[in-house]
Amino acid sequence: MRISELSRASGVPVATIKYYLREGLLHEGQLTSATQAQYDEGHVARLRLVRALIGVGGLSVAATREVLDQLDHPADSTHDLLGAAHRSLGPAVDEDVDTSAAESLLDRLGWQVRSADRQAVRQLAAALTALEAADFPLSEDEVVSYAQAMRAIAEREVADVPLESTEAAVRYMVLGTVLVEPLLLALRRLAQVDASARRYGTR
Rank of each mutant, 00 (worst) to 15 (best):
E41N: 05
L59A: 12
A75V: 11
G42H: 04
D69K: 10
I54Y: 09
E66D: 08
V44R: 10
Q70P: 11
L71Y: 08
S33V: 00
R51W: 01
V50H: 01
D72E: 05
G24R: 02
L31F: 00
S77W: 15
V61N: 10
G55Y: 15
G58E: 11
Q70T: 15
H43F: 01
A37Q: 12
L59G: 13
Q38Y: 00
V50F: 01
G24W: 00
V56N: 08
Y39C: 12
Q70H: 13
G55P: 11
D40F: 02
Y39Q: 04
L53H: 09
S60G: 15
L53A: 08
A62I: 15
L49A: 06
R65C: 02
T78A: 10
E41R: 02
P74S: 11
A63R: 15
P74W: 12
A52T: 04
D69A: 13
R51A: 03
A37M: 05
R51M: 03
A75Y: 11
L47V: 03
H27A: 08
Q30L: 07
G55T: 13
A52P: 04
T32Y: 00
L47A: 04
L49F: 13
A34H: 03
P74T: 06
Q36V: 13
L68C: 09
D40Q: 05
R48C: 05
L26K: 02
V44T: 10
Q36G: 01
A62N: 14
A52Q: 04
H73F: 10
G58C: 14
L47F: 01
Q38L: 00
D72V: 09
S33C: 08
T78V: 14
T78G: 09
G29Q: 02
H73Y: 07
